[in-house]
């Protein structure tokens, strides 16, 4: 498969209230994105468990995105503050596994920021295309 045609698979965890809505707004605005990303909805970014992220990498994700409401805007008061803390831990473990930093990213996207969501997906996809498939990707998985 040529590098040009290769489409990375990116798992994006979105919170119900902000970033999932941001992805919806991107759709409503028809902001085109590469078809690399599969969104998994949770109620709050605070629910995104390191377990989910590690599993995504082990199953074959070329990148994992952790997204939620802007700090101060959490629907559940401060779930995203806790996400931020957990993310630091996640980042350190993922780095220790030898995974490039571009493959795990955190972003706060509000329900109205469709354009931001789309450009985030475009940027990450571009970065991952340069890096190639994740070193953890099991053989035979697409």
């Amino acid at each position: 498969m040529s590098a040009e045609a290769w489409e990375p698979k990116i798992v994006a965890f979105c919170c119900n209230w902000c970033s999932y809505g941001g992805a919806d707004s991107a759709g409503m605005g028809r902001f085109q994105q590469p078809p690399s990303t599969r969104i998994i909805r949770v109620m709050c970014s605070g629910r995104i468990d390191p377990l989910h992220v590690f599993n995504a990498f082990l199953e074959g994700a070329d990148a994992v995105l952790v997204t939620g409401c802007h700090i101060g805007d959490c629907h559940y008061v401060n779930g995203n503050d806790k996400t931020k803390i957990k993310y630091k831990f996640l980042e350190s473990v993922v780095r220790e596994l030898g995974i490039e930093k571009e493959r795990l990213q955190l972003n706060w996207i509000s329900a109205s920021e469709g354009e931001k969501f789309a450009s985030f997906i475009r940027d990450v996809t571009e970065q991952i295309k340069k890096l190639g498939p994740s070193p953890l990707k099991p053989e035979g998985v697409s």
């Binding site: 698979k9 798992v11 599969r38 998994i40 949770v42 468990d49 377990l51 989910h52 599993n55 995504a56 199953e59 074959g60 994700a61 035979g140 998985v141 697409s142």
Partner: peptide
């Protein structure tokens, strides 16, 4: 339930 989704993002090429 969440992991069922994570796992099924991917397919074996076969």
């Amino acid at each position: 339930q969440v992991l069922a989704q994570v796992k099924n993002v991917f397919r074996f090429q076969e």
